[in-house]
Amino acid sequence: MNSEATPPKLAVWKFASCDGCQLSLLDFEQELISLPEQIEVAYFLEATKGTAEGPYDLSLVEGSITTPADRERIREVRRQSRHLVTIGACATSGGIQALRNFADVDDFISLVYAEPGYISTLEDSTAISDNVPVDFELQGCPVDRHQLFEVISAFLNRRRPAIARHSVCVECKRAGNVCVMVAHGTPCLGPVTQAGCGALCPSCDRGCYGCFGPMESPNAPALSRRLADLGVEDTDIVRVYRTFHADREPFKSESIKHEH
């Protein structure tokens, strides 16, 4: 996308989030030090004071939209960006803070803050794609740094990122794990969750808790029936779908379906 004389400009933006996904960028370690030879890091406040004006070739966006000011800011980021890629659960699904979407935000404000008058916030926490068009969404809470590297390389080389959309189950089989649900009756979201983490939880004898969000074609009702067979109560079924990707379909509808 660029001539050799001008390296592509990368910008990293933060909205409501924990900083963990941008931190994944700083976890490249040895690759990180030579980054500026291939890319101009034009805006990345967590790492540098130096900032360059847009437009940017690639904007990575972390975090969800929760305030009126941020709703305006993301529009400006979109205007300034040739490609906009969301990184992580907050930017892609609204994040854990989207749990407010199932409650009255005013109640939340008065629970946490002694002086609620100072809080200016939106009713809902929304994904970036609910606010502006996005070119790619990288899932994960946090994103996997190897997948992040792949996405950056793909956009800078004008190709589609090679990110698998199948379920954690596929990764888990490849890892040679015994199925925690079949063998031990441990509730697991692996069948409906997108791969990318490396089947981390089943690898340590734990059921997947869905932090990579829904896979391409999840059959949540079938999984819910299986969970019920294992003795998982409806209130717990609501909770397992309603955590890090609470506002993302089909997790959202599936959680509502089991609410009494």
């Binding site: 909205f15 409501a16 929760t66 305030t67 941020d70 994040g95 854990i96 803070q97 749990l99 407010r100 409650a103 935000v105 109640d107 939340f108 404000i109 629970l111 946490v112 803050y113 809080i119 916030t121 926490s125």
Partner: peptide, 8 residues
Amino acid sequence: PPRFFEAF
């Protein structure tokens, strides 16, 4: 921006 952990 506030994320309301203590509430949810």
